[in-house]
Design a protein around this nucleic acid. Structure first.
Length: 108
DNA sequence: CCCGTGACATCTG
DNA sequence: ACAGATGCCACGG
């Protein structure tokens, strides 16, 4: 399909929320990856959207580079990964665990 | 229109 | 491997 022109230029916020909502269970994507899907490199901008509007989307499926969970939310995201069967890996970090990006990274 | 902010990424020493 | 510094992007005031 040719969507040469978006019917309605969606705000960056809506675009990010749409991508995150598209991530299937058991998979994850990094902030940089999400930004890249939108054609931008604003990984921080994605984090801003998540912090403000990520309450209604599977925010735990969006992680940082290196397979680390969102800063300050590792404890909250952990049960979600175990529930969805996301491949985790032990870590000596304060988070206590790390996500196996090689196996869980979402590939469209 | 300019500045500060933020659930980041990447490079260098 | 670790810590610090710099770059990037979008949004609100």
């Amino acid at each position: 399909m040719v969507r040469a022109l978006p019917e309605q230029p969606p705000g960056f916020v809506d675009a990010v929320l749409a991508v995150v909502d598209d991530i299937p269970p058991g998979c994850v994507a990094t902030y940089g990856d999400v930004a890249a899907m939108l054609g931008s490199r604003g990984a921080r901008a994605v984090g801003q959207v998540m912090a403000r509007y990520g309450a209604d989307v599977p925010w735990w499926r969006v992680i940082r580079a290196g397979g680390r969970p969102p800063a300050g939310h590792a404890e909250r995201a952990r049960p979600h990964y175990e529930l969805e069967g996301t491949p985790l890996r032990p870590s000596a970090d304060d988070d206590g665990y790390r996500i196996d990006l090689a196996a869980a990274r979402w590939r469209p």
